[in-house]
Nucleic acid binder design. Structure first.
Lengths: 370, 370
DNA sequence: CTGAAAGCGCTAACAT
DNA sequence: ATGTTAGCGCTTTCAG
């Protein structure tokens, strides 16, 4: 591994100019087949691999697209990064019946799915994907760093301050993922939060005949929550129901939060009949809430109908299985990348905002077993 | 978005030289505080973001580490990439009680975990991670491409031909992940496959008193399988048992394969008592096998003990819960990155091979309920 | 179809 | 502490 070979080495070895070497990679058809073979032979012989840095600099494009999400995951116990490379010799630790750790409550299954979609589309469009994960408080460094490495960057809406967006968008196009519609110049892909909750509410009101559903909101500042709540209100208004008169409970998008909401509710009820329907702003909340309700003897959906939002995997495995609105996470990733490609191709077109359709999944928690 | 600002623009705006601008980012302490502020002000004013391409070219280091895995995932139904950006307007599709799709049998939870570990360590070491996913048959293009973009590359052992490894290793250091020990010059991180299966077998033989366990192998050519089988044989040999005299069944590391093995076994048995213990080369096989056995009325572990290998999440949720050997996937990712960093720091040190310890998880499928 | 030459934006000596 | 000055390896006109 003496010196990394460059175009010059290959050119010299093949007896051509560096321009020709470059062409062999970028525009093979512009090179005579025979010389192409000669060059490729030298490439193989020398072990030449084009430098993306040099290429990116000269071509003003890197062929890489960035994806930024905050907080990849909580560090597992004992899995903190280490400087230690020594490591003990081969060994086996025996653990008797390790207790269920609660199932790696990864809040970012969402991220995994979006990543999957992005990667799929990036591959399809001939781009490489670079993922940036925001650790801790300040995303500025990470975002700036990857902004310097890519041709376009997609970020979870709300994950970084506007000033940063403004800053990096001077260099590359930005695409916002999820969150609510904004009145700015950024391209944006999101899901039909309001429409989804609206349809779900219509189902509860029209099909199930409930005229006083209780809404369990998420963290107040969340765009997703705001939109969902709005869809809820709109549906009720259409049916002449005064949403303002209905009680609203407050969760925090976590399962624990859902449990707490349920416990509080039970206490408030003090034995009285539970609400006919409880519509949660996300699945985790609904799942936690159901746990507690069921433990307290509430029959779902007989006594109380429960619904969620997101369509996470667990919603399909709970009992009763949860009626919910499924977000198209993979499609979201695909759309983000497709949007960037489109923006890169035509930088002048007006900002694009794409709203992805959702699926209303009617299951046992609202309808009795199938 | 007229023209992307460069060091020159910032330098001019701040009234300093480009070297000073560069220093503000790379060695802030070498710049007087006051001038640093002046420069940063210009940076903010102009929206300057350093070009990683230029930096990489000049510094001969990109600060990016690569991770290559074959086949990210099977494309979901209807989730194929698309050129279509139009998309219908906001909509909601209603689906009544969608059937369980079998649970997104992602063979690459493994990859997700390793990725997680890699990302964790990369962040810790100040690197950015670039992931490459091998689609279809030929990994040459993808691997070469990312090899040109990074300072070091970690790949799943066996996922690319040696010739390719040889080629790209001319440019950057390579780290192999998993698989078996090889006698080459590549750094390598792997898990204690043999030791794990050895310990598990000792448990079955010594603690459980089974002297004729049946081994269910995986795909023959797999290094992992070979090592595990070897650990199995070694343990038996130590107890004076002739492993060669014992029947060996053949699965393929999939759950379906496990079902098939069980069905075949049941047929062969034709009513006779099942083996006292069945040790599978991986969890999926064990899980599929248990399904069929249980359906046929075999009591586990009463009639037959079943064990797996890998420690996937499902192994903890099956009933009975599966006794298995847990691979340290996150640690594997961390070790891969740590190894690269170490190699980058000292290119001359001899090839490193690290074997990570595994955990023997004793659960119900071998011991009765806890 | 191929070669010559001018950068791309930045880092890293080396001066000052 | 700051400025000057070579490149880093490749793409891309422009000629021929």
């Amino acid at each position: 591994m003496k010196k990394t070979p460059t175009v010059y080495d290959v050119a010299a070895d093949a007896g051509v100019s560096i321009a020709t070497v470059s062409r062999v990679f970028r525009r093979p058809d512009d090179v005579r087949a025979s010389t192409r073979e000669t060059v490729l032979a030298s490439v193989r012989a020398l072990g030449y691999v084009p430098s993306a840095s040099a290429r990116g600099l000269a071509a003003r494009r890197t062929g890489v697209l960035g994806l930024f999400f905050p907080d990849f995951d909580v560090v597992d116990e004992g899995d903190a990064p280490s400087d230690d490379l020594s490591g003990s010799a081969s060994r086996v630790e025996v653990v008797r019946d390790i207790p269920d750790t609660g199932g790696a409550q990864r809040a970012d299954l969402y991220f995994d799915e979006v990543l999957r979609g992005s990667e799929l589309q990036a591959w399809h469009d001939g781009f490489t994907l670079m993922i940036g994960v925001g650790r801790g408080s300040n995303p500025v460094e990470v975002v700036t760093d990857i902004a310097g490495r890519v041709d376009g960057l997609a970020l979870l809406a709300g994950s970084v301050p506007d000033s940063l967006l403004e800053h990096v968008s001077r260099r590359i196009p930005i695409v916002l993922i999820a969150g609510a519609r904004r009145d700015d110049d950024f391209d944006h892909v999101m899901v039909a939060n309001a429409d989804g909750m609206h349809a779900l509410t219509r189902h509860v009101v029209d099909d199930l005949g409930v005229r006083d559903p209780v809404f369990v909101a998420g963290p107040s500042a969340t765009a997703d929550d705001v939109e969902r709540h709005e869809g809820f209100r709109r549906a009720l208004a259409e049916s002449g129901i005064d949403a303002e008169a209905l009680p609203v409970l407050h969760g925090d998008f976590t399962r624990a939060g859902g449990r707490r909401v349920a416990a509080d509710l039970l206490e408030t009820l003090a034995g009285a009949a539970p609400p006919r329907a409880i519509m949660c702003s996300n699945d985790q909340t609904a799942l936690g809430l159901m746990e507690v309700l069921i433990a307290a003897g509430v029959r779902i959906p007989l006594d109380t109908i429960v619904t969620g939002f997101d369509g996470i995997a667990e919603s399909r495995m709970s009992s009763p299985r949860l009626t919910t609105v499924q977000q198209p996470m993979i499609a979201l990733g695909r759309a983000a990348v497709a949007t960037m490609r489109s923006r890169l191709e035509d930088p002048e077109q007006p900002p694009m905002a794409r709203r992805l359709p959702v699926k209303l999944l009617l299951r046992e928690s609202s309808e009795g077993s199938a």
